[in-house]
Amino acid sequence: MSVSYQAVQWNAAKKAYDRRLALAIAVYLGGFVLAATAAFEVSPIVLVMRAFGTGAVLLLVLILSIGPLARCTPRMAPLLYNRRHLGVTMFLMALVHALLATVWYHGFGVLDPLTSILSSSTPFEGAAQFPFQPLGLAALVILFAMAATSHDFWLRNLSPRVWKALHLCVYLAFALIVAHVAFGSLQDAIWSGYAWMTAAGTAWIVGIHLAAGVKEFRVDRRARALAADGWVRVGEVGEIEEGRAKAVKLGPARTVAVFRHARGFSAISGVCAHQGGPLAEGRIVDGCVTCPWHGYQYLAESGQSPPPFTERIPTYELRIEGRTIFVSPTPNAPGTPVPPCAAGEGGAA
């Protein structure tokens, strides 16, 4: 959250996060090379290449797990907060793997390395001869596009819709990497556990994404039924903790976050202006609604970021009948102030 661009918006929490990430990667790479040196008779450069390759795959599995799991447990929120750094790190590890593989297997031939990767000289007779390296190259190109456009400058200048669509290509990259591993190293690995680990990791990622998607779909369908008679029931006053929110779907394309704060209840858009983060999963910090993804902040009563920041999101009218909260299905223009609705009022705010 900034009024001008910086290379990296580090703060104490993000620095601590990155230090832990760097340490974990160093331990993994060192551990892999030491363990594999003892187990296999392979040249050191191949071991390092595999260490970076497997490390990148594991990091990708972690990254793809964060989104669906964060919807189930707030414990994943710290990982969600800095997912962008994980993504760029994963790309750099994949790049080192690709560079080592290119130099080692294609660097000293007659053809130039890129032509050598793209042209398969082995006759195709089955899965074992499938040209797996172009699959890895295609995945690397997608990961590069994502890492290169991860800065907020690109979000602003490509438009959020295009940026988000581009970054959803990570699913395609994941499928390409699974195929790259399945038709590549899996065919030559002596240890059968490698095949089962690949299958288990893939099943885990596909499973949690399908489960999260089905859950969202059901909530959307229920929301359409609720919104049929004008104002939508949010729930009872006691359901929302102080400083927290409840998400309400107003249809397939609108989510509202109803916050309880020191001055009463306020409703704002459930989607952050920055990267579409789920504001209802955030909390009130220093008097402002704080997005769980990257810490963007808004005033609950107006949907405006505190000065000098300029982000604005739509607000919604609330009313409390008895102990039940209702929200208007019509959004106000972004940044429109709405007085908070107090629990004791018993009428429209």
Partner: peptide
């Protein structure tokens, strides 16, 4: 970015 919010949410 705030001007794009209305497009951001449905998208």
């Amino acid at each position: 970015p705030g001007d794009r919010t209305e497009r951001w949410q449905p998208a």
